[in-house]
Design a protein around this nucleic acid. Structure first.
Length: 579
RNA sequence: CGGGAUGUGGCUCAGUUUGGCUAGAGCGCAGCGUUCGGGACGCUGAGGCCGGAGGUUCAAAUCCUCUCAUCCCGACCA
């Protein structure tokens, strides 16, 4: 493809509304443009990467036995009402009416449509298992779209749905998808982790996420330092802390109230009393479905609200208001403690606190804290010990006991074992070999294809721009003709262009009449894996130059025998992406 | 939805505090010339009713009211 006849509007400066690197670079490289908040146009170069990503997904999905289909984007409300999600999905669902005042929505996900389809088609266990997928534009009216393609409202998603006769079959379908996902992200040359995940609103009983590792990721994952021997990793949202309940029964001096005027936060109290935050107990007051809840964790830890919500069995959990705190503790925010709480009938305490003693905590009195607190001795309310804090670096791996580390990641894939959640509510049933009616066992498997493009860049960039891994690069080779007016240079560049295309490589041929500096900057910005530079200077010496965008390594190949020398260079570029 | 910020040529921004000449710069764009191996230089030129609506004033990009849009932080998710 000749640049002079292509459309790649690169920019020297990043747009003011772009915050993260992938967004800035995608716009600067002329790959996307914003239409409105969370909604983007794919320009030709960006579309090429998107299509390559889709094709890798398609290849592995097909190889794993899934069948591609395409469902409508517009979905009638009836199906959503049937599963109760018309209400539950809330404002994320973009709703509208047709001319006859009938309700519709734009599909944010397609469990309802696929289940509706198959309940009318599948009658017998002989027709199962089935796995159908599609690659399609989804729409979710996000609370807050942000970060360019990372969280758009309109985005490209691959969604697959499996249907099995029994649990064993569903487990096989799940495993097949899990394996396919590993091949997909490996095939994209991305560095990623499979992590245990929370099921969230999609529902079902267990799930894994696939996280592209990048310092700019929105999610935090705990992973075993023993990797790859131990592959355990989990989203901190649900990473278990396995220290367990090990009570410390050592002697503790009698509790003593100390004056701490105006010292609210953990840091303030600790510096005031000269204590380590690890000696302090944070008493967090929350409201779970309207009921007051007290939770205790160590001063240097974070509460995991998801764990607590599950423990309490609530749908909704939030921090108490200052007024509520005042009512339950008799003190302003900042002085809550486990002794003498009112309106709370039990206390949830993190396991870790059992293993310590002689704590500092709030006194439930303005400007006062208690020290020498022994939870086992001094607290009169019943205590429920549990794992309610976020994992931290150094916690033991639940799998092998080695310490875990925390990394940032971008969620690009999520697989769920759904069970019969949808097949029961929508009566998607079949007859088994005994003629008995049973609900199909379902799984669903998503990949945010447009997010993959952003994540790929978040993981692979430098000051100069993008460094595309070969499988996702919009073209394979960036061929630069430094002097298009020079007949000799152009003849050589044209020759190389033709040669590379004959090899089956996709070539972006920069034949523009621009100054060399402009072309070099654009080449680095766009970030194709291999650059080949044909210019008067080096050609006079019988050479053409090459550059590996990832390593920055430059070399010269003989112009005369370029065809013989090129494969070695290209292989070197591919090898530099082996992980 | 709560909190914060920003809207001025295609892009990045100055000017707004303290109202006052014909609204500026850099990049980009068009023409001419000089250049030509890591975003060249000179000259000439096109392009803006200062997000929108109302108001105050002799006078509004600048002050007031309302409104729309975008971005950031928080509650949700591929």
């Amino acid at each position: 493809m000749r640049w002079s006849r292509y459309y790649i509007p690169t920019l020297k400066e990043a747009p003011a509304d772009a915050e993260v690197v992938s967004h800035k670079l995608l716009v600067r490289a002329g790959m996307i443009r914003k239409l409105t908040s969370g909604i983007y146009t794919w320009l030709p170069l960006g579309l090429r990467t998107l299509e390559r990503a889709k094709n890798i997904v398609r290849r592995e999905m097909n190889a794993a036995g899934a069948c591609e289909a395409l469902m409508p984007m517009v979905i009638p409300a009836d199906l959503w009402i049937e599963t109760g999600r018309w209400e539950k999905f809330g404002d994320q669902l973009l709703r509208f009416k047709d001319r006859n005042e009938r309700d519709y929505c734009l599909g944010p996900t397609h469990e309802e449509v696929i289940t509706d389809l198959l309940r009318g088609e599948v009658r017998s266990y002989r027709q199962l298992p089935l796995n159908l997928y599609q690659i399609q534009t989804k729409f979710r009216d996000e609370l807050r779209p942000r970060f360019g393609l990372m969280r758009g409202r309109e985005f490209m998603m691959k969604d697959a749905y499996s249907f099995d006769c029994d649990d064993a079959g569903a487990d096989r379908s799940y495993a097949a998808m899990r394996d396919a996902y590993h091949r997909i992200f490996s095939g994209m040359a991305l560095s990623f982790r499979q992590v245990e995940a929370d099921t969230g609103a999609i529902g079902g009983n267990f799930s894994h996420e696939f996280m592209v590792l990048a310092d700019t990721g929105e999610d935090t994952i705990a992973s075993c330092t023993g990797w790859p021997e131990c592959a355990w990793a989990a989203n901190v949202e649900r990473a278990p802390v396995v220290t367990g309940y090990v009570p410390d029964r050592s002697e503790c001096p009698a509790p003593e109230t100390v004056s701490t005027p105006g010292q609210h936060s953990v840091e303030e109290v600790c510096s005031f009393l000269g204590a380590d935050p690890a000696r302090l107990i944070k008493t967090l007051l929350l409201v779970a479905d309207g009921t007051p809840v007290a939770a205790l964790i160590r001063g240097d830890r974070e509460l995991n609200e998801i764990k607590l919500r599950k423990l309490v069995g609530a749908d909704d959990i939030r921090f108490a208001s200052p007024e509520q705190v005042q009512a339950w503790t008799g003190a302003p925010v900042g002085f809550a403690g486990p002794v003498g709480l009112r309106g709370v009938d039990r206390i949830y305490a993190d396991n870790e606190l059992a293993a310590g003693n002689d704590w500092i905590a709030g006194a439930n009195r303005a400007d006062a804290h208690v020290r020498h607190l022994d939870l086992h001795r001094d607290v009169t309310l019943p205590i429920e010990w549990a794992d309610i804090r976020n994992a931290v670096a150094g916690d033991p791996c639940p799998c092998c006991g080695r310490p875990v580390e925390l990394k940032r990641g971008i969620e690009v894939g999520h697989i769920f074992k759904l069970g019969t959640k949808y097949s029961e509510s929508m009566k998607a049933v079949f007859l088994d070999e005994n003629g008995r009616e049973k609900p199909m066992i379902m799984g669903c498997y998503g990949i945010g294809v447009s997010r993959v493009v952003a994540a790929c860049i978040e993981q692979n960039f430098d000051e100069g721009g993008i460094m595309f891994p070969p499988p996702l690069a919009p073209f394979d080779v960036h061929l630069i003709n430094l002097d298009p007016k020079n007949a000799e240079v152009s003849a050589k560049a044209d020759e190389i262009h033709a040669f590379l295309e004959e090899l089956g490589l996709e070539v972006l041929y920069d034949d523009r009449e621009e100054r060399p500096g402009v072309k070099f900057k654009d080449a680095d910005l766009i970030g194709l894996p291999a650059q080949i530079v044909v210019g008067g200077k080096s050609l006079a010496g019988g050479k053409v130059e090459t550059k590996n965008r990832r390593t920055g390594e430059k070399s010269a190949l003989p112009a005369e025998t370029f065809a013989d020398a090129f494969p070695g260079f290209w292989q070197g570029v591919l090898d530099s992406w082996q992980r």
